[in-house]
Design a binder for these strands. Structure first.
Lengths: 334, 334
DNA sequence: ACGATTTCTGTAATCGATTACATGCCGGGT
DNA sequence: ACCCGGCATGTAATCGATTACAGAAATCGT
């Protein structure tokens, strides 16, 4: 690989001059400037990123720690992150971790010296300690992570509010026996959405046995199984709230193939509003979240820190979530 | 930030010893080893990535150049890439470019010294020059890129074969007037799929005017518009082949809302088999491609190069594409 | 004509690691 | 007592850039 020295030698100048030409810093005579540019192009020189960031201690890169890339949700977040990052001329260093503390710490260490800041998305409750262990010598923004407030900057989805809207909608339509298909028990989103389910059913005065909870794991298959179970419950619930759209879609299949009509017999409401939701039959009522906005905002906050401004306040920012009523939910048959 | 020097000073040893301890290289007495480890942990030391890769000239990172992250297609590829990369302990540096030569070259330069190899996905035909300009001092694998064979290693989707299967299916079912909704004219996939359409309609002996081509741009909206246009054609085609699923879905909406029955009046076939396809009404016949396998294979090939083995043969590898017949296609009404 | 500026360019320190080589120490063989 | 070998550790060069400072050349004023 051709280095700055090669260019300097070939052009008959010192490395300092080449550096000045490449960065438009300092003052160089027009003649030598053009000559150096010429030689650099001829040799196909491009500056060595690692060397550069070693001395300048800036990398123009931000790191992203993700639990997994599966699912519409994550690809949508990444899309937002990428959009915001691209506009700022930064690059993206991506790393996965399954959320356990050891892995998060390892990933964090691997990023040392390669990134200017870190975006951490780790919805698993167990990750809390790991995240707190991150030294704050380093700009970090938490994305939809459980964490003590004031510990780090964070952006979270309004899980509780969105789920409350969905549940209120069902209650207002007159449902008095409602099931929830929950997500993973150690998942932050899951826990918050469940909390809303419990609060609203209680406030609405439903009996404990009329607020059914069925375990799921966010996959379509688990939603399908949950749907089958609910068909056999007696009395059947008249409405189902799934902790995400994938499970709602799975449940929808199970209910319909089990002969139940949606929404006449059972209403179904999901969460996320993934693109597929409006194509379902019937189109799925769901809680809409601008997921890519989550990514965009996170990057904006992080870059605020990286660039030195905005380092006082550590705040938690909510990304709104609102119910979109389509055809999969209605009033129960009297 | 705490550096190796700080650890050395604090532990009362030289930087060499600290380095040896961290890398299990050379020989260090057990006593000092434990002591150094202790101090390092206490100070929260982690080695500086840039410094390390400067001297070792390895980065444990591979770069990915993408045209855009929108659409199911790209998120699926990324998923595959990420999976393969994660298993090998490598990281991923992601960069976007809109495919024009200047941008590709810029992105490439930015990656210099930060990555051990590069994965380039740039389906735009104009990108060919830029890609060819990449010095081959550097391991590069092309992902679904147009390029002269032997120039670079590449992995491509069997666009022509898959589209041929779809078209043969329609011809065998007796369709004698078939439309294609094409993708962007400068897109590689688009061109190949169109080529198959033209070849098969010609081989089947269709008249030129019975092989209708309608322009699209891969978006659902353009598919919808194309569907509307086809409704007004007279005589109407009995089958539509869309260059991707998004457009097929758009066309489906247009056709149905225009009163045409699918597949009784018009058959629809797509390409990609995105998750949504089987949920359409009716479920969409489409050409299935294991998109994430595309990513996985690309990484495997690239790492083969990076690790020094396997650097002789430059080959082009095909990822198979096969038709999946669902309910959106059938025989034309006699 | 000579010193003071100004303008351009080169020298060398520096970033934080790795690693070849030198050095010091200790023990054992003769 | 002396030397040699092996083990543990330290010294310093190195990777490829940036940049403060020094120095050389050109311009200007008196």
């Amino acid at each position: 690989m051709v280095s700055i020295k090669d260019v300097a030698r070939e052009a008959g100048v010192s490395v300092a001059t080449v550096s000045r030409v490449c960065n438009d810093s300092g003052v160089v005579s027009e003649t030598t400037r053009l000559h150096v540019l010429d030689v650099a192009a001829k040799l196909g020189y491009s500056p060595h990123g690692a060397a550069r960031s070693l001395i300048t201690s800036r990398t123009s890169t931000i790191g992203v720690l993700l639990p997994d890339l599966y699912g519409e949700f994550f690809s949508e977040v990444i899309r937002g992150i990428d959009r915001a990052v691209g506009e700022s001329g930064y690059h993206l260093l991506v790393s996965r971790s399954h959320g356990d503390e050891r892995e998060i710490v390892a990933a964090f260490r691997a990023m040392r010296g390669r990134v200017d800041g870190l975006l951490v998305m780790s919805p698993d409750l167990d990750a809390r300690n790991a995240v707190n262990a991150l030294r704050d010598h380093f700009p970090v923004v938490l994305l939809n992570c459980p964490s003590e407030r004031d510990q780090h900057d964070s952006i979270v989805i309004a899980n509780y509010d969105g789920a409350s809207e969905a549940m209120c909608h069902l209650v207002e339509r007159g449902h008095r026996r409602i099931a929830m298909i929950t997500g993973l028990p150690r998942n932050y989103d899951s826990v918050e959405r469940l909390r809303a389910f419990r609060d609203i059913t209680r406030e609405a005065g439903l009996a404990r046995e009329d607020a059914i909870e069925v375990g799921g794991d966010f996959t379509e298959a688990s939603g399908f199984r949950a749907g089958q179970m609910l068909l056999e419950a007696s009395p059947r619930p008249t409405a189902v709230f799934a902790a995400n759209d994938s499970m709602a879609i799975g449940a929808l299949s199970a209910l319909r193939s089990g002969g139940a009509r949606v929404p006449e017999d059972i209403s179904v409401v999901g969460f996320d509003d993934i693109p597929m939701a409006r194509y379902m039959n019937p189109p799925l009522s769901t809680v809409q979240v601008d997921i890519s906005a989550l990514g965009v905002r996170a990057v904006e906050r992080l870059l605020g820190h990286v660039r030195g401004s905005h380092d006082g306040a550590r705040q938690r920012e909510l990304v709104p979530a609102h119910l979109v009523v389509r055809s999969s939910s209605g009033s129960p048959a009297a």
